[in-house]
Amino acid sequence: MNLPKPTETPAANILVVDDDGFMRMQLRVYLQKEGHRVELAENGEEALAKFAEIKPEVVLMDALMPVMDGFACCQTLMKNYQNPSPLVLMITGLDDETSVDRAFEAGAIDYVTKPIHWAVLRQRVKRLLYQSRLQHQLESANQMLERLAKIDQLTQLANRHQLDLFLNTEWPEAIREQYPFSILLCDIDYFKNYNDHYGHQGGDDCLQQVAKALSRVVHRPKDLAARYGGEEFLMALPNTDLEGAIHIGENIQAEIARLAIPHARSAIANHVTLSIGCASTIPCLGSSWEQLVAAADKYLYEAKAQGRNRLVSGRWGEEAMG
């Protein structure tokens, strides 16, 4: 994955914190000439309020100030804001090694010395912004890769890996809390015939339309719609009893019927239909979500045997799971 190159001289929001009014003005004029947007604060307390308001990319802060010095302010910023942490450039005396050590201990990422060498300040601000924006791009890329690892690329639903992670998390919670758990297993009727007639591109388009319909119906934060394999889709419904799951399944079938996707090679209709198996239980110790999925698969088989385009459901009780 190629990352865009960060801008060579990026403009940024910069907060300048210094109790010396003349120094504040000098820093603002210089930084504005570099194209940056500059806010000012006279001490650490004012800096904290300004930071919360404008969220600057860089804070240029004097180490020694009244009310709240730069070290205390920097520590507070690092405590209150994380991922990413603020980029603080501390201003110290030329020979003040103790302040430099304290600045890094407080969380500052770099420092500049007084009297300020403007070319040095320019390069340090520029380098910080470059590193910061490159880091943000890398984090975005990593988030995208993580998402790609969990999403079926054709349908944009959860893939089997994400489904397993979800069920392995939610099933134990359902056992602890003793609330119902339901599974809907859906299969597109005569999908092989559909592919043979409309081609694989047509089949892919059909799968995408069905997936979007499922997403419109199954949208509670706790629910998960996944591509289970081929033309099969699985809906995991924590804290949903059998009646609730049947209602969702019927809504899915109604949504598919509303789409009226033409299916010239269906033996039961002239449009795409779904067969659905619905299983529900209150999980008990020793049970597994795989057993509930197997029960939903059994009901799906019965729906197909009864002529397809229907929903067959049942409760999967403790005795059956044992």
Rank of each mutant, 00 (worst) to 15 (best):
S313V: 00
R308V: 02
P283H: 07
Q178E: 14
D62M: 07
D241R: 02
I276Q: 08
G314A: 14
V120W: 07
H161S: 13
R102L: 14
L89K: 11
H200V: 03
Y130G: 01
D69Q: 07
C206L: 07
Q137R: 11
D189P: 12
F104Q: 15
E319I: 00
A11Q: 08
W118A: 05
K222C: 09
K50D: 07
R102I: 07
A149Y: 07
D204K: 12
Y81G: 10
L259M: 11
C284H: 03
R160E: 05
A254V: 01
H117D: 14
T273L: 10
R127F: 02
G21D: 10
A260Q: 14
V59D: 04
E255S: 14
Q153M: 07
L285V: 05
Q131S: 05
H197M: 03
L224E: 00
M321W: 14
P172C: 09
L138A: 09
E231S: 03
I248M: 10
E243W: 02
A303D: 10
G93M: 12
D101P: 01
P4A: 10
T113E: 13
F22S: 06
R147A: 01
I261F: 04
I116P: 09
D62Q: 06
K298V: 14
I256R: 05
D18T: 03
G93Y: 09
L274D: 09
D19Y: 11
L165P: 01
R310G: 04
Y30T: 11
Y179Q: 13
Q26P: 00
I282C: 05
R124S: 06
L167E: 13
P86T: 11
M61L: 11
G202A: 01
A141W: 07
I276M: 02
E46T: 06
N83W: 03
F22P: 00
R28N: 08
L15I: 11
G21I: 12
L285S: 04
K150T: 07
K79H: 10
T281M: 06
K298H: 15
E34W: 09
F104S: 14
Y30A: 15
L165A: 05
D18V: 01
A245H: 08
R160V: 11
Q153S: 10
K304T: 00
R37F: 10
K33F: 04
A213N: 06
L148G: 08
F191T: 00
I109R: 15
A294L: 12
G203E: 01
I268V: 15
G44R: 02
R102H: 11
S280R: 02
Q208M: 10
K33E: 15
A260H: 15
G286E: 00
G107C: 13
E250C: 06
Y198C: 00
G314I: 04
G229E: 02
K50Q: 15
K114F: 00
A119Q: 13
L87N: 15
A225Q: 03
R122S: 10
V38M: 12
P238V: 05
R28E: 15
A267H: 13
M61R: 01
Y130P: 00
R127L: 04
M61P: 05
C284D: 02
K222Y: 03
H263N: 05
A47L: 06
V17G: 15
